[in-house]
Measured scan of single mutants.
Amino acid sequence: PDFTLHWNGITIHFKGIDEEQFRHLRELLDRGVSLEELEELAKELIK
C-alpha cells in the first residue's frame, strides 16, 4: 500500500510499505529524526 505523511511542512510519499513499517516511520518522525536519518531509513526500505 501507499502512505502519505505530512511532516514539518514536507509531504512524503511511501510506496509499497506495510502499515507496520509506516507506523515505525511515524514514531521516528514524532521523536525528531533528522532528514539524514530519514534518507538512510528510506535506503534500507528500498533494498
Rank of each mutant, 00 (worst) to 15 (best):
Q21S: 12
L41A: 09
L45T: 05
I17A: 02
H24W: 15
Q21K: 09
S34R: 06
P1N: 14
V33F: 13
L5E: 00
L28I: 08
L38D: 00
F22V: 03
H6T: 14
I17T: 03
R31Y: 08
D18H: 07
E19V: 12
K15I: 12
R23E: 04
K47W: 08
H24F: 15
T4W: 09
F14N: 00
E36Q: 11
D18L: 05
S34C: 03
H13P: 01
G16E: 07
R31A: 09
E27M: 15
E19C: 10
S34Y: 04
F22Q: 02
E20R: 13
E44S: 10
H13S: 12
Q21G: 08
L45D: 02
L35F: 09
F3E: 01
E37C: 02
E44T: 09
N8T: 01
I17G: 02
T4S: 09
D18P: 04
E40H: 09
E39T: 12
W7I: 09
L35V: 11
R26V: 07
E40Q: 09
L41D: 01
D30V: 13
F22K: 02
E39W: 15
G16Y: 08
H24Q: 13
R31L: 10
F3K: 02
K15C: 04
V33P: 05
L28Y: 06
P1M: 15
I46A: 13
F3C: 05
V33T: 11
E39I: 14
T11V: 10
D18K: 11
V33D: 02
K15D: 11
L5M: 05
R26W: 12
E20I: 13
E27S: 15
H24I: 14
R26H: 04
H13N: 09
G9A: 01
E20A: 15
E39R: 12
T11A: 07
L41F: 12
V33C: 07
I46V: 10
K43F: 10
E44F: 08
I12C: 05
F3H: 04
D18A: 07
T4V: 12
Q21E: 04
V33Q: 03
L28T: 04
W7D: 01
G32H: 05
H6V: 15
K15R: 09
T4M: 07
K47A: 15
A42H: 08
I10G: 03
F22M: 05
D18R: 08
W7A: 07
L25W: 06
I10T: 08
R23T: 06
G9Y: 03
W7G: 01
L38S: 00
N8S: 03
L38E: 00
E36C: 05
R31N: 10
H24S: 08
L5I: 11
I46E: 10
L45I: 11
L29I: 08
T11S: 08
I12S: 01
H24T: 13
L38F: 09
E37Y: 09
H13L: 10
R31C: 04
F14Y: 02
I46H: 08
H13M: 12
T11W: 05
P1Q: 14
R31H: 09
E40R: 12
E36M: 10
W7E: 01
K47F: 10
K47T: 13
L28E: 05
K15W: 15
G9S: 03
F14L: 09
V33G: 13
F14E: 00
H24K: 12
H13R: 10
